[in-house]
Design a protein around this nucleic acid. Structure first.
Lengths: 113, 113
DNA sequence: TTGTCAGGCAACCAGAAGGTTGCGCTTGCA
DNA sequence: TGCAAGCGCAACCTTCTGGTTGCCTGACAA
Protein backbone atom coordinates (compact mmCIF):
# COMPACT_ATOMS: atom_id res chain seq x y z
CA UNK A 1 0.00 0.00 0.00
CA UNK A 2 1.54 3.28 -1.03
CA UNK A 3 -0.53 5.86 0.78
CA UNK A 4 -0.79 5.92 4.55
CA UNK A 5 -4.48 5.84 5.28
CA UNK A 6 -6.81 3.89 7.49
CA UNK A 7 -9.39 2.96 4.92
CA UNK A 8 -12.05 2.33 7.52
CA UNK A 9 -14.00 5.54 7.49
CA UNK A 10 -15.09 7.74 4.61
CA UNK A 11 -15.58 10.77 6.86
CA UNK A 12 -12.29 12.52 5.96
CA UNK A 13 -13.07 12.27 2.27
CA UNK A 14 -16.50 13.77 2.78
CA UNK A 15 -15.04 16.45 5.01
CA UNK A 16 -12.58 17.31 2.25
CA UNK A 17 -15.45 17.54 -0.22
CA UNK A 18 -17.47 19.69 2.16
CA UNK A 19 -15.94 23.01 1.22
CA UNK A 20 -16.87 25.17 -1.73
CA UNK A 21 -13.34 26.33 -2.44
CA UNK A 22 -12.13 22.76 -2.58
CA UNK A 23 -14.99 21.67 -4.81
CA UNK A 24 -14.06 24.49 -7.14
CA UNK A 25 -10.45 23.33 -7.16
CA UNK A 26 -11.57 19.80 -7.93
CA UNK A 27 -13.74 21.10 -10.74
CA UNK A 28 -10.84 22.97 -12.27
CA UNK A 29 -8.57 19.97 -11.89
CA UNK A 30 -11.28 17.86 -13.42
CA UNK A 31 -11.00 19.74 -16.67
CA UNK A 32 -8.03 17.78 -17.84
CA UNK A 33 -4.34 18.39 -17.48
CA UNK A 34 -2.47 18.79 -14.24
CA UNK A 35 -2.19 22.39 -13.10
CA UNK A 36 0.36 24.33 -11.13
CA UNK A 37 -0.49 26.10 -7.90
CA UNK A 38 -0.02 29.54 -9.43
CA UNK A 39 -2.36 28.69 -12.23
CA UNK A 40 -4.93 27.33 -9.79
CA UNK A 41 -4.54 30.49 -7.75
CA UNK A 42 -5.27 32.81 -10.68
CA UNK A 43 -8.95 33.65 -10.64
CA UNK A 44 -9.58 31.69 -7.47
CA UNK A 45 -10.14 34.76 -5.34
CA UNK A 46 -7.65 33.71 -2.73
CA UNK A 47 -3.96 33.59 -1.97
CA UNK A 48 -1.52 31.04 -3.25
CA UNK A 49 -1.07 29.85 0.32
CA UNK A 50 -4.80 29.38 0.66
CA UNK A 51 -4.85 27.24 -2.45
CA UNK A 52 -1.88 25.28 -1.16
CA UNK A 53 -3.64 24.55 2.09
CA UNK A 54 -6.72 23.29 0.32
CA UNK A 55 -4.65 21.13 -1.99
CA UNK A 56 -3.01 19.57 1.02
CA UNK A 57 -6.35 18.80 2.58
CA UNK A 58 -7.50 17.19 -0.65
CA UNK A 59 -4.26 15.26 -0.91
CA UNK A 60 -4.54 14.05 2.66
CA UNK A 61 -7.97 12.71 1.80
CA UNK A 62 -6.46 11.00 -1.22
CA UNK A 63 -8.51 12.98 -3.70
CA UNK A 64 -5.62 14.68 -5.40
CA UNK A 65 -1.94 14.13 -6.01
CA UNK A 66 0.88 16.57 -6.61
CA UNK A 67 4.36 16.19 -8.00
CA UNK A 68 7.12 18.67 -8.52
CA UNK A 69 8.36 19.48 -12.01
CA UNK A 70 11.13 22.04 -12.12
CA UNK A 71 10.14 25.06 -10.15
CA UNK A 72 6.44 24.35 -10.20
CA UNK A 73 4.33 21.65 -8.59
CA UNK A 74 1.64 20.04 -10.69
CA UNK A 75 -1.57 18.70 -9.24
CA UNK A 76 -4.08 16.28 -10.60
CA UNK A 77 -7.13 14.35 -9.51
CA UNK A 78 -6.94 10.93 -8.01
CA UNK A 79 -10.06 9.21 -9.08
CA UNK A 80 -10.26 6.16 -6.89
CA UNK A 81 -11.22 8.12 -3.81
CA UNK A 82 -14.20 9.64 -5.52
CA UNK A 83 -15.40 6.19 -6.41
CA UNK A 84 -14.77 4.97 -2.90
CA UNK A 85 -16.84 7.82 -1.54
CA UNK A 86 -19.61 7.03 -3.95
CA UNK A 87 -19.53 3.43 -2.85
CA UNK A 88 -19.88 4.55 0.75
CA UNK A 89 -22.99 6.49 -0.13
CA UNK A 90 -24.26 3.47 -1.98
CA UNK A 91 -23.67 1.37 1.07
CA UNK A 92 -25.55 3.64 3.45
CA UNK A 93 -28.39 3.99 1.02
CA UNK A 94 -28.58 0.27 0.36
CA UNK A 95 -28.41 -0.61 4.03
CA UNK A 96 -31.28 1.71 4.57
CA UNK A 97 -33.30 0.15 1.77
CA UNK A 98 -32.82 -3.33 3.15
CA UNK A 99 -33.89 -2.31 6.62
CA UNK A 100 -36.93 -0.57 5.26
CA UNK A 101 -37.86 -3.61 3.24
CA UNK A 102 -37.47 -5.96 6.15
CA UNK A 103 -39.55 -3.67 8.29
CA UNK A 104 -42.20 -3.45 5.63
CA UNK A 105 -42.33 -7.20 5.15
CA UNK A 106 -42.52 -7.69 8.87
CA UNK A 107 -45.34 -5.24 9.28
CA UNK A 108 -47.27 -6.67 6.37
CA UNK A 109 -46.85 -10.28 7.47
CA UNK A 110 -47.91 -9.21 10.92
CA UNK A 111 -51.29 -8.09 9.73
CA UNK A 112 -52.06 -11.71 8.80
CA UNK A 113 -55.48 -11.03 7.28
CA UNK B 1 -40.49 23.14 -2.69
CA UNK B 2 -40.81 22.32 0.96
CA UNK B 3 -37.31 22.76 2.30
CA UNK B 4 -35.46 26.04 2.03
CA UNK B 5 -32.24 25.13 0.28
CA UNK B 6 -30.26 26.47 -2.61
CA UNK B 7 -29.79 23.23 -4.47
CA UNK B 8 -26.80 24.57 -6.35
CA UNK B 9 -23.96 23.23 -4.30
CA UNK B 10 -23.47 19.84 -2.70
CA UNK B 11 -20.85 21.13 -0.28
CA UNK B 12 -23.13 21.34 2.78
CA UNK B 13 -24.24 17.76 2.31
CA UNK B 14 -20.65 16.56 2.11
CA UNK B 15 -19.75 18.68 5.10
CA UNK B 16 -22.57 17.07 7.03
CA UNK B 17 -21.29 13.63 6.04
CA UNK B 18 -17.75 14.57 6.98
CA UNK B 19 -18.01 13.78 10.65
CA UNK B 20 -17.71 10.40 12.29
CA UNK B 21 -20.35 11.04 14.93
CA UNK B 22 -22.84 12.04 12.28
CA UNK B 23 -22.02 9.04 10.12
CA UNK B 24 -22.65 6.86 13.13
CA UNK B 25 -25.99 8.53 13.69
CA UNK B 26 -26.89 7.97 10.07
CA UNK B 27 -25.89 4.34 10.38
CA UNK B 28 -28.12 3.87 13.40
CA UNK B 29 -30.97 5.66 11.71
CA UNK B 30 -30.35 3.50 8.68
CA UNK B 31 -31.22 0.41 10.63
CA UNK B 32 -34.92 0.90 10.27
CA UNK B 33 -37.45 2.65 12.41
CA UNK B 34 -37.34 6.29 13.43
CA UNK B 35 -35.58 6.83 16.73
CA UNK B 36 -35.94 9.34 19.51
CA UNK B 37 -33.11 11.56 20.62
CA UNK B 38 -32.75 9.83 23.99
CA UNK B 39 -32.49 6.48 22.28
CA UNK B 40 -29.91 7.81 19.84
CA UNK B 41 -28.02 9.29 22.76
CA UNK B 42 -27.80 5.98 24.62
CA UNK B 43 -24.52 4.33 23.73
CA UNK B 44 -23.40 7.22 21.58
CA UNK B 45 -20.76 8.40 24.02
CA UNK B 46 -21.98 11.96 24.06
CA UNK B 47 -24.61 14.20 25.53
CA UNK B 48 -28.17 14.51 24.41
CA UNK B 49 -27.41 18.06 23.38
CA UNK B 50 -24.50 16.88 21.30
CA UNK B 51 -26.74 14.43 19.48
CA UNK B 52 -29.33 17.15 19.00
CA UNK B 53 -26.77 19.44 17.44
CA UNK B 54 -25.62 16.77 15.01
CA UNK B 55 -29.19 15.93 14.09
CA UNK B 56 -29.78 19.56 13.31
CA UNK B 57 -26.74 19.69 11.07
CA UNK B 58 -27.94 16.60 9.25
CA UNK B 59 -31.42 18.04 8.97
CA UNK B 60 -30.10 21.31 7.62
CA UNK B 61 -28.31 19.34 4.94
CA UNK B 62 -31.57 17.57 4.21
CA UNK B 63 -30.23 14.16 5.15
CA UNK B 64 -32.59 13.56 8.02
CA UNK B 65 -36.01 14.63 9.17
CA UNK B 66 -37.52 14.90 12.64
CA UNK B 67 -41.07 15.15 13.86
CA UNK B 68 -42.48 15.44 17.31
CA UNK B 69 -44.69 12.71 18.71
CA UNK B 70 -45.92 13.34 22.20
CA UNK B 71 -43.04 14.16 24.42
CA UNK B 72 -40.38 12.73 22.17
CA UNK B 73 -39.08 13.70 18.76
CA UNK B 74 -38.54 10.96 16.22
CA UNK B 75 -35.89 11.15 13.55
CA UNK B 76 -35.48 9.27 10.33
CA UNK B 77 -33.37 9.30 7.21
CA UNK B 78 -34.26 11.30 4.16
CA UNK B 79 -32.99 9.30 1.29
CA UNK B 80 -33.11 11.71 -1.62
CA UNK B 81 -30.17 13.74 -0.38
CA UNK B 82 -27.93 10.74 -0.26
CA UNK B 83 -28.79 10.02 -3.85
CA UNK B 84 -28.24 13.64 -4.79
CA UNK B 85 -24.81 13.53 -3.18
CA UNK B 86 -23.99 10.37 -5.03
CA UNK B 87 -25.05 12.00 -8.27
CA UNK B 88 -22.72 14.90 -7.54
CA UNK B 89 -19.83 12.51 -7.15
CA UNK B 90 -20.87 10.81 -10.36
CA UNK B 91 -20.87 14.14 -12.08
CA UNK B 92 -17.39 15.11 -10.97
CA UNK B 93 -16.05 11.70 -11.78
CA UNK B 94 -17.68 11.62 -15.19
CA UNK B 95 -16.58 15.13 -16.08
CA UNK B 96 -13.09 14.06 -15.27
CA UNK B 97 -13.33 10.95 -17.39
CA UNK B 98 -14.51 12.91 -20.39
CA UNK B 99 -11.70 15.40 -20.10
CA UNK B 100 -9.17 12.63 -19.77
CA UNK B 101 -10.56 10.88 -22.77
CA UNK B 102 -10.49 14.00 -24.90
CA UNK B 103 -6.94 14.65 -23.84
CA UNK B 104 -5.94 11.09 -24.58
CA UNK B 105 -7.54 11.16 -27.99
CA UNK B 106 -5.88 14.44 -28.76
CA UNK B 107 -2.48 13.20 -27.75
CA UNK B 108 -2.85 9.99 -29.68
CA UNK B 109 -4.08 11.67 -32.83
CA UNK B 110 -1.20 14.07 -32.51
CA UNK B 111 1.35 11.32 -32.75
CA UNK B 112 0.02 10.58 -36.28
CA UNK B 113 2.33 7.68 -37.00
C1' DT C 1 -51.55 17.81 41.25
C1' DT C 2 -47.17 16.41 41.41
C1' DG C 3 -43.18 14.12 39.87
C1' DT C 4 -40.56 12.46 36.02
C1' DC C 5 -39.22 11.74 31.40
C1' DA C 6 -37.91 13.85 26.84
C1' DG C 7 -36.52 18.04 24.79
C1' DG C 8 -35.44 22.98 23.69
C1' DC C 9 -32.62 27.20 24.50
C1' DA C 10 -28.60 29.70 25.64
C1' DA C 11 -24.08 30.35 27.27
C1' DC C 12 -19.73 28.81 27.29
C1' DC C 13 -15.18 26.59 25.97
C1' DA C 14 -11.19 24.52 23.53
C1' DG C 15 -9.52 23.33 19.39
C1' DA C 16 -9.84 23.02 14.36
C1' DA C 17 -10.39 25.34 9.95
C1' DG C 18 -10.20 28.99 6.36
C1' DG C 19 -7.34 32.41 5.06
C1' DT C 20 -3.60 36.04 5.15
C1' DT C 21 1.16 38.05 5.50
C1' DG C 22 6.15 37.78 5.68
C1' DC C 23 10.33 35.61 4.62
C1' DG C 24 13.56 32.60 2.63
C1' DC C 25 14.85 28.92 -0.67
C1' DT C 26 15.30 26.83 -5.40
C1' DT C 27 14.78 26.90 -10.46
C1' DG C 28 15.28 28.91 -14.74
C1' DC C 29 16.30 32.43 -17.88
C1' DA C 30 18.62 36.70 -19.75
C1' DT D 1 25.78 36.66 -12.34
C1' DG D 2 21.69 38.56 -11.27
C1' DC D 3 16.84 38.65 -11.12
C1' DA D 4 12.13 37.03 -11.27
C1' DA D 5 8.89 33.22 -10.99
C1' DG D 6 7.07 29.50 -8.19
C1' DC D 7 6.88 27.51 -4.01
C1' DG D 8 7.36 26.00 1.16
C1' DC D 9 7.31 27.18 6.07
C1' DA D 10 5.74 29.48 10.04
C1' DA D 11 3.15 32.75 12.54
C1' DC D 12 -0.94 34.93 13.08
C1' DC D 13 -5.98 36.08 13.14
C1' DT D 14 -10.86 35.24 12.99
C1' DT D 15 -14.66 32.34 12.54
C1' DC D 16 -16.71 27.86 12.79
C1' DT D 17 -17.46 23.52 15.10
C1' DG D 18 -17.93 19.73 18.33
C1' DG D 19 -19.25 19.24 22.73
C1' DT D 20 -20.62 20.40 27.51
C1' DT D 21 -23.44 22.34 31.42
C1' DG D 22 -27.40 24.65 33.42
C1' DC D 23 -31.95 25.82 33.40
C1' DC D 24 -36.67 25.92 31.80
C1' DT D 25 -40.85 23.98 29.32
C1' DG D 26 -44.18 20.53 27.72
C1' DA D 27 -46.27 15.73 28.01
C1' DC D 28 -48.03 12.24 30.65
C1' DA D 29 -48.84 8.69 34.22
C1' DA D 30 -50.00 7.93 39.12
Amino acid sequence: MSVKRRSGTPAPVFAALGDESRLRLLARLGSGEPMSISRLTAGSGMTRQGVTKHLRVLAHAGLVRGRRRGKESLWQLERQRLEAARRSLDLISRQWDESLNKLKLFVESDRSD
